[in-house]
């Protein structure tokens, strides 16, 4: 797994819920690519269209609150998000993202220091976030050991497949 991630950011508000990340009316869709095209359409329908693969989503507090739908991280992954940074995350969303191999870091205050289009470089093992235009470095919470082992395996599915063998 890539542990240094560099990209441009889009910055979202506090309390972005799973209906805004992936509206309920699209829940029947199972094709991951198609799911990606509706990502964040509850915030603005143009976000997914304009999103470049590898870019980073930054949000305020309680990102991913609401339902337990896995479509939310699936949509983010397939829109091309390489990483999500937020002031805080909702619990089920956090678990789902780790399970699906979408890295995410809690970095308090991050949504206030960045604006759309800023470029950052993040070390997800060390939890450091470097803002390229100013050189400023912020410290995020480190991902716990167990969660990190899931991410390193590429998500819980490969991990479980191994376990099923042994």
């Amino acid at each position: 797994m890539e542990t240094i991630i560099k990209g441009k950011v889009i910055v979202l508000d506090n309390n972005i819920d799973t209906d805004q990340i992936y509206p309920g009316r699209f829940l029947e869709i199972v094709n991951p690519q198609e799911i990606g095209t509706h990502c964040l359409s509850g915030v603005d329908e143009n976000i997914a269209k304009n999103f470049k693969k590898g870019d980073i989503v930054v949000a305020g507090t309680n990102f991913g609150c609401g339902s337990s739908r896995e479509h939310a991280p699936i949509a983010l992954l397939n829109m091309g998000a390489s990483l999500v940074l937020a002031d805080s995350f909702a619990r089920i969303f956090f678990r789902n993202s780790i399970n699906l191999g979408l890295p995410l870091l809690v970095c308090k205050g991050i949504s206030r220091v960045l604006s759309d289009g800023d470029e950052i470089e993040v070390d997800i093992v060390e939890g450091t976030v470097k803002i390229l235009k100013t050189g400023e470095i912020l410290q995020a919470d480190k991902i716990g050991e167990y969660a990190m082992s899931i991410l390193e395996a590429g998500g819980i599915k490969p991990l479980f497949r191994e376990r099923m063998k042994g």
Binding site: G66, S68, P73, R95, N99, L100, I156, K157
Partner: peptide
């Protein structure tokens, strides 16, 4: 359960929690 409102079951003294599909 695959539903966030599984917290409902605390009403009966059970521990209920929601997860996603892969969990």
């Amino acid at each position: 359960a695959t539903d966030s409102h599984t917290t409902t079951h605390g009403a009966l003294g059970a521990m209920g929690t929601g997860v996603g599909a892969t969990d």
